[in-house]
Design a protein around this nucleic acid. Structure first.
Ligand SMILES: [Zn+2]
Ligand SMILES: [Zn+2]
Ligand SMILES: [Zn+2]
Ligand SMILES: [Zn+2]
Lengths: 157, 157
DNA sequence: ATCATAATGAGAGTAAGTCTCATTTACACC
DNA sequence: GGTGTAAATGAGACTTACTCTCATTATGAT
């Protein structure tokens, strides 16, 4: 598994758009204005976002279209859907558009924050998971590692 | 974080019931017949189960009561809710009623299988997570580590 | 046994997310 | 720049996993 590292420089906005366009084209999808605005809304957020958060940042986007396009972007490898944060799904850019990382999930408010672990630990995790997967006849795609707890805001209440 | 290990002997059924009863009592809840049957259904499954799977194994349990009781059991520290497997939540016994472990999540069928990693890796993971949590002012409770991929059944299609 | 309180269950209600379909937009070709 | 074709859009109906309500029943303490 080769992946973007914490120490890699971030993609520029134009590189991001180019990469998204390329991935959509590979799946015979068009990079329309609505999808551009959706991608920019996720980029501006800088953290995993829910649908209402997207619509606030990018008003005028129809919820039904945003849902459909998040689906298209997910299937095209542009975004990841995160289901750890309560009843609303969060979305963020998928690797390699974003460096490999993990999440602090608040059990009270459901907010999700990105964190980066060092590459040695990631390698050990992948090795161990590959081993148990092999024993189960399971074909690995990616791992997710969340720390559940209370964020600074909720802890102080 | 002290936790049950892979190498610990499993709890006997009567020990399980006693532990569940104690945890419920601690939260001023009663260990009723319905809750006993629910706990036994989860025990018999031996893997994380969804509500329909519970109702098949334990017919006669009213879905509304099962949902309510899964909630009570979760708040009492008896079961964990797993939301990684598609649109239905899966439930399993929480630590320390079950040894600490992780999940193989099939991206096609949503099934979830338990896997156990060695204690050294778990310790490294906890150490790294504690570090990034501290930097973010985040209070850790537990980690979750899933491997997403395709199970043997779905891969062969 | 009695009592106070918690649990039950049938069904109504909620809300995140999906589907439908008439209209609009994007791209390929000229 | 026009034209044609297939994909994308969006308003709203629909689905469904789950929660809530409330009249009835089971539970455990005394
Ligand atoms: Zn993230
Ligand atoms: Zn990782
Ligand atoms: Zn498990
Ligand atoms: Zn672990």
């Amino acid at each position: 598994m080769t992946r973007r590292r914490n120490t890699d420089p971030p993609l520029s906005t134009s590189d991001l758009h180019a990469a998204v366009s390329q991935r959509l084209a590979r799946h015979d999808h068009r990079y329309t204005q609505g999808r551009r605005r959706l991608v920019e809304a996720i980029l501006e957020a800088g953290q995993p976002v829910t649908l209402p958060e997207i619509v606030v940042v990018a008003p005028g986007l129809a919820p039904s279209s945003v849902y459909r396009n998040l689906d298209v972007l997910e299937r095209s490898g542009v975004v990841n859907r995160i289901t750890s944060g309560g009843d609303r799904a969060h979305f963020e850019f998928a690797e390699p558009l974003m460096s490999h990382h993990h999440h602090l999930v608040c059990v009270d408010c459901g907010s999700i924050e990105d964190v980066f672990l060092d590459d040695e630990l990631e390698a050990s995790v992948d090795r161990s998971l590959a081993e148990v997967a092999g024993q189960a006849g399971f074909t690995p795609l990616r791992h997710s590692l969340d720390l559940h707890g209370r964020c600074a805001g909720c802890e102080s209440d």
